[in-house]
Computed example of a mutant assay.
Amino acid sequence: MKTLKFAALALLFTGFASCSDDDDSINRLDIKTSTVTNFEAPQTGGRDQEPESGEFAKFDFATGMRTTSDTEWDIAFRGLKIAVNGGTQTGTNDEPARNGNAAVAITTGTLASVTDVSTLTFIQDAPSSFAIPTGGSDGWYDYNFTTHTVTPIPGKILVFRTRDGRYAKMEILSYYRDQDSSDPSGSRVYTFDYVYNPNEGETTFE
C-alpha cells in the first residue's frame, strides 16, 4: 500500500515538474536578430573648435526602432558618440538624462561567437567619460587622418545590458549612408547588426 502511495506521489510531482518546464518554454520569448540601416545621428559643430551640439538619436532594442522617449531607450547616437541609458550624464551638450540601468562591454569576436556574456565587465557612462570610447583601439572604429574616413574595427562587438536588464549584442558595419564611405557628406549614418534577448536576466543568446 505504501509503495502504491509513493508511486502516486512521484507521478504527481513529475507531472508538476513537466507542467512547469512546459510553462517556462511557452513563456520564453524568441531571440531577435536584425539589421538597422541608415540610422541617422547628425550633430552640429565639432569643427574648428566649435562645440558639438544637437539632439542624440535614441534607439530601443525592445522595439528595434528609433524613439523620442525620455525613458524607453537603451543607446543613443550623435556623430561618433554613443551613450548608454545608465550611469550619469557626461557633461556633453544636449545629451539625454540617464534614467535606466544600461551598460556596455566591448569584446572581440563575431556576433555568432559571442554566446554567453555573463563573464564580461559592463560599464556605464560617467562624468566626462562615455562608456564607449571614441576612436583608438579601445573603441569601435579607426579614423584615417588622410582620407578623413571612419572605419569600424572588424571583430569589435558591443554587448549591452539594456535599461531594464535584458541583453543585446551589436556589430557596427558602417558610419556612412548606404555604407558608402566614398561620400563624406553621408557620414553620421549608422548601419549595424544586432541580436536582442528579450528574456529578463538571460545572459546567453542561444
Rank of each mutant, 00 (worst) to 15 (best):
S113M: 08
L11N: 00
E72G: 00
T33S: 14
W140M: 04
T134Y: 01
D74M: 01
D60A: 13
V117Y: 07
A105M: 02
L4D: 09
N38D: 15
N38Q: 11
L120E: 03
S20N: 05
F205T: 01
V104R: 05
G109L: 12
K156N: 07
T88N: 15
D193C: 00
G91W: 15
T67W: 07
H148P: 00
T33D: 07
D142S: 14
I132S: 01
T146Q: 13
F39H: 05
F205E: 00
L9H: 11
F122Q: 10
Q124T: 13
T67K: 07
A7Y: 00
A105L: 02
R66D: 06
P42R: 13
Y141R: 14
P51V: 03
K169C: 08
G64V: 05
G165P: 01
A7Q: 07
V159K: 05
T191V: 12
K156L: 07
R78A: 02
N144E: 08
V189K: 08
Y176K: 06
D74Y: 08
T108P: 06
L12H: 02
T110H: 14
T90P: 00
T88W: 12
I157M: 14
E200V: 14
L173D: 11
D164W: 02
E95P: 15
D125H: 05
T35E: 06
L11P: 00
A97V: 14
N38G: 05
D178H: 14
Q124C: 04
E40L: 09
Y167E: 03
G165H: 12
S185V: 10
M170S: 06
I31M: 04
G139C: 03
P154Q: 06
Y167L: 05
T203C: 04
A62H: 10
G91F: 15
E200G: 03
G100H: 06
P51N: 04
E202V: 14
A41C: 03
H148A: 14
T33V: 14
A57C: 08
G201F: 08
A102P: 02
N85P: 07
A112S: 14
A76M: 09
G135Q: 05
P184V: 04
N38R: 07
I172N: 04
R161F: 13
T146D: 12
T37D: 08
T147I: 02
D116R: 07
V195P: 01
K169Y: 10
A8D: 02
F13V: 11
A83M: 13
S128D: 12
T107L: 09
G201I: 03
T92K: 15
T68R: 01
G15F: 03
P198L: 03
T63A: 03
T3V: 06
T88Q: 15
E50G: 00
R28C: 06
S18T: 13
P42M: 12
M65V: 03
A83D: 01
D21K: 11
D48W: 15
P96K: 04
A57T: 15
E52D: 02
R78W: 08
E202K: 06
G46E: 02
T147L: 08
T33K: 14
D48P: 01
R66S: 10
